[in-house]
Design a protein around this nucleic acid. Structure first.
Length: 257
DNA sequence: ATGGTTGCAGAGCAA
């Protein structure tokens, strides 16, 4: 079972990329972020033609998340329970007995801004929710664009991306560790300890060509799924295509039960 | 190199 995540940075622009990539990699489940589409405009019939069902929660211009799956998604949850939020950043569902949580974590703009405070409050709410969710659904995978690089191996230049930078600040990394401490393991790091593997490259300054990136997209798997985890991949290929998203898709491969 | 690019929307913000 191949479970993927991709920040497409506008599904309107990236639908051809997604279609091509679905044919190429044939994932079983895909969590999308930054669809930037109202629900009435979601291309569910196009995706159905490729064999995927869709559940989604979007808005115009910003944010927007979706879960695509080959088998039906059940028990769909939109947003963080008990956390009122206009921004469409969270969708969860159960597919083939695995609870899937798709997150588009707040970017945070800069340390000390209102958006940064919102990021930390939002992450705190996610932590409280997931603590419950992992009890209710031991087979849990939490994936998406986390907008946090866990450690120095996950940034191209630790001098630039330091304790005082957005995406790598002490408080952000601590918030990510608190999620890990729930028993949610970074699947990529179960299979690869090297630095220099990134999932996002700035459009500016030829970031991708020079591999000036960050690893900020993950699939976190619970203890119960860990024995089934046989691989984790960052797929750089679509980042090399014409007019790409700034993020690469990532996925985790689970062996059959 | 405090710039650079992309998306949305139609100027300037968010990332």
């Amino acid at each position: 079972m191949k479970i993927a995540s991709w920040n497409v940075n506008s599904l309107n622009v990236r639908l051809p990329h997604l279609e091509e990539w679905l044919r190429l990699r044939a994932p079983d489940v895909v969590a999308l972020q930054e669809t930037k589409l109202e629900d009435s405009r979601f291309p569910d019939s196009v995706l159905a033609g490729l064999g995927y069902r869709s559940v989604f929660s979007g808005q115009k211009t910003y944010n927007g998340v979706a879960i695509l799956s080959r088998t039906p998604a059940t028990d769909v949850q939109i947003g963080i329970p008990g956390f009122a939020d206009e921004q469409k950043r969270v969708i969860a569902a159960t597919v083939d007995g695995v609870r899937i949580v798709d997150l588009y974590v707040v970017n945070g703009q800069d340390i000390g801004t209102e958006k940064y405070d919102y990021k930390l409050r939002w992450l705190d709410a996610v932590h409280g929710w997931l603590a419950q969710e992992i009890q209710a659904h031991p087979e849990l995978i939490v994936l998406g664009d986390f907008n946090i690089a866990p450690d120095d191996r996950d940034v191209h230049d630790p001098k630039v991306w330091n304790d005082d930078s957005i995406l790598t600040s002490t408080a952000e990394r601590a918030a990510l560790r608190r999620l890990a401490d729930l028993g949610l393991h970074d699947s990529f790091r179960l299979h690869n300890e090297e630095g220099g593997h990134f999932s996002w490259w700035d459009y500016r300054a030829a970031g991708f060509r020079r591999n000036l990136g960050l690893r900020i997209d993950f699939a976190l798997i619970s203890d119960a799924l860990r024995p089934r985890c046989v691989g984790a991949v960052i797929d750089r290929e679509p980042r090399s295509w014409d007019r790409p998203s700034d993020h690469a898709p990532v996925w985790v491969e689970l062996a059959p039960r």
